Computed example of a mutant assay.
Amino acid sequence: MKQVFILRGLPGSGKSYYAQSLADEMVAGNESEYVICATDDYFYTSEGEYQFDKFKLPQYHNLNLARFINALAQGIPLVIVDNTNIKKWEFIAYTQAAHALAYQVKEVVVGEIKDKSLQHLYAKRCQHNVPLKMISKMAYMFEW
């Protein structure tokens, strides 16, 4: 069965950890059997340093969607979208492409969205230095 998991959650909530754990559990970490598509990947320099640029965000989201569709076209059994996906429209193209190519789609919310104490924790452990104020704003805007 071909499956797509669309992860949703605040920065620092553990989406990337969840994605890798899911791949390890479902396909025993066999790298030819899964692809994790994260827009964050495009913000890393060749030296491995993360450099967020809000002006490149639309371009990088498009590149991530293209990588996702390519994985589906190749018939990769497990494809995981590791983005915040705060609004439903942000992942509708992923869902439609997956359904068009006969993948089962599961939406997974990682972490708690509205819990203020956890938002503080997420801000502390977020590897991309997203400030608490932005995490709280994203929580407020989150669409169920």
Results as ranks from 00 to 15, higher is better:
residue 94 Y to I: 04
residue 101 L to H: 10
residue 58 P to D: 00
residue 95 T to Y: 13
residue 106 K to S: 14
residue 128 H to F: 15
residue 143 E to L: 04
residue 98 A to L: 05
residue 119 Q to Y: 10
residue 103 Y to L: 01
residue 32 S to T: 13
residue 67 R to M: 13
residue 116 K to V: 15
residue 33 E to A: 08
residue 137 K to F: 15
residue 54 K to T: 12
residue 25 E to Y: 14
residue 11 P to H: 01
residue 132 L to N: 03
residue 97 A to D: 11
residue 97 A to Y: 14
residue 100 A to M: 10
residue 84 T to I: 08
residue 43 F to N: 06
residue 135 I to L: 06
residue 30 N to C: 06
residue 87 K to F: 15
residue 34 Y to M: 01
residue 100 A to E: 11
residue 97 A to V: 11
residue 88 K to Q: 11
residue 60 Y to Q: 05
residue 48 G to K: 03
residue 78 L to T: 10
residue 57 L to Q: 14
residue 97 A to Q: 12
residue 124 K to H: 09
residue 120 H to Y: 07
residue 138 M to N: 07
residue 130 V to P: 00
residue 83 N to M: 07
residue 4 V to I: 04
residue 120 H to E: 10
residue 60 Y to G: 03
residue 7 L to H: 08
residue 84 T to D: 06
residue 15 K to D: 11
residue 101 L to Q: 15
residue 49 E to H: 08
residue 142 F to A: 01
residue 34 Y to E: 02
residue 9 G to C: 06
residue 133 K to Y: 11
residue 86 I to P: 09
residue 5 F to S: 05
residue 59 Q to G: 00
residue 74 Q to N: 14
residue 92 I to G: 02
residue 125 R to C: 12
residue 68 F to Y: 15
residue 115 D to N: 07
residue 141 M to Q: 10
residue 21 S to R: 04
residue 56 K to H: 13
residue 11 P to Q: 01
residue 79 V to E: 09
residue 126 C to R: 00
residue 3 Q to P: 12
residue 87 K to L: 13
residue 86 I to K: 03
residue 46 S to A: 14
residue 122 Y to I: 00
residue 125 R to N: 15
residue 97 A to M: 12
residue 29 G to W: 12
residue 28 A to Y: 13
residue 53 D to T: 10
residue 53 D to I: 11
residue 18 Y to M: 01
residue 69 I to C: 13
residue 44 Y to P: 14
residue 119 Q to I: 10
residue 16 S to H: 02
residue 40 D to Q: 05
residue 90 E to S: 05
residue 26 M to T: 07
residue 143 E to R: 03
residue 16 S to W: 13
residue 66 A to R: 09
residue 110 V to R: 01
residue 107 E to W: 01
residue 68 F to K: 03
residue 144 W to I: 02
residue 48 G to D: 09
residue 46 S to H: 13
residue 48 G to E: 07
residue 26 M to D: 09
residue 125 R to M: 10
residue 66 A to M: 09
residue 31 E to T: 12
residue 93 A to G: 04
residue 124 K to A: 07
residue 99 H to W: 15
residue 35 V to Q: 08
residue 23 A to K: 04
residue 58 P to V: 00
residue 12 G to M: 06
residue 58 P to W: 00
residue 102 A to W: 15
residue 13 S to Q: 06
residue 29 G to D: 05
residue 59 Q to P: 00
residue 8 R to I: 03
residue 122 Y to H: 02
residue 95 T to N: 02
residue 126 C to H: 05
residue 110 V to P: 00
residue 38 A to Q: 10
residue 140 Y to K: 05
residue 54 K to I: 12
residue 133 K to D: 09
residue 77 P to N: 01
residue 4 V to H: 08
residue 56 K to I: 13
residue 100 A to I: 01
residue 76 I to H: 08
residue 36 I to Y: 08
residue 83 N to C: 12
residue 43 F to Q: 04
residue 61 H to M: 07
residue 20 Q to M: 12
residue 98 A to M: 02
residue 50 Y to H: 09
residue 12 G to Q: 03
residue 103 Y to V: 02
residue 134 M to P: 00
residue 47 E to Q: 11
residue 48 G to N: 06
residue 95 T to S: 02
residue 144 W to S: 05
residue 104 Q to P: 13
residue 37 C to V: 11
residue 128 H to C: 04
residue 118 L to Q: 13
residue 110 V to C: 04
residue 83 N to D: 15
residue 133 K to V: 14
residue 9 G to Q: 03
residue 25 E to L: 07
residue 55 F to I: 03
residue 87 K to T: 03
